[in-house]
């Protein structure tokens, strides 16, 4: 699915990287624990998280992820947006909670991958 479909499905607000919304993504993971993302995730392009700090963007950067969705209406701050822009990453914010956001994306064909 394309990033722009994620935006539609989750009724998400685009925080930055709107010009990258045509990017294709196939797998995602949902976690508030960055330690686990770094340890267990492989080749996932989308990170859903309710945690909001610079290290969420840094973690996604190290994992070569393309898009972060902040759930429960969480919003990243300026320094996170700066980091994301430097790594060509899309930041989205949805009001939906983690479980619902993951379920909606899964039911539209996004998968968890091998992580």
């Amino acid at each position: 699915m394309k990033v722009k479909e994620i935006i539609e499905i989750l009724e998400a607000e685009v925080i930055c990287g709107e010009d990258l919304s045509e990017k294709e993504v196939h797998t995602a993971c949902g976690s508030d624990m960055m330690s686990d993302v770094l340890a267990y995730v492989k080749d996932q392009a989308v990170l859903l998280s309710g945690l909001v700090n610079n290290q969420v963007v840094r973690t996604a950067e190290m994992m070569d992820m393309k898009c972060i969705v902040f759930v429960r209406g969480k919003k990243p701050d300026e320094s996170m947006i700066e980091l994301a822009n430097a790594s060509d990453m899309v930041l989205l914010s949805t009001k939906k909670p983690m479980f619902t956001a993951c379920g909606l994306l899964y039911s539209h064909g996004l998968r968890g991958g091998n992580g």
């Binding site: 508030d32 960055m34 330690s35 686990d36 340890a39 945690l51 700090n53 290290q55 969420v56």
Partner: peptide, 27 residues
Amino acid sequence: KEGYSTAPDNVRSLGFGAGMGLPNIKK
């Protein structure tokens, strides 16, 4: 050992301290 951590609680609230750091570096 995976899961062993001496990180304080405030670090866990930042998303770290799951006791995966050193094992993950080795991996």
